[in-house]
């Protein structure tokens, strides 16, 4: 493989799979995947909304 092809292969993986990883991170932190969303000391949902 040429260096350019390798660079674009890595770019595809980083951007698309990285995007998926980031989306899953948000999905879990929002509480959408089950369990409790993140709360502050007073017990209010702190990130970003109570879902």
């Amino acid at each position: 493989m040429t260096g350019t092809a390798i660079a674009f292969l890595l770019l595809a993986i980083i951007v698309v799979w990285g995007g998926l990883g980031l989306a899953v991170f948000y999905y879990r932190r929002s509480g959408a995947s089950g369990g409790e969303p993140v709360r502050d000391r007073e017990g209010h949902v702190s990130f970003p909304h109570d879902t």
Partner: peptide, 25 residues
């Protein structure tokens, strides 16, 4: 009623594209 729509949509959209990249490889 209390369901997260946009975050779920982001995961679904990027998961679909991730599988397309995998299929391309």
């Amino acid at each position: 009623r209390r369901s997260d729509l946009t975050t779920t949509g982001l995961v679904a959209g990027f998961a679909n594209s991730s599988f397309e990249i995998l299929a391309g490889i």
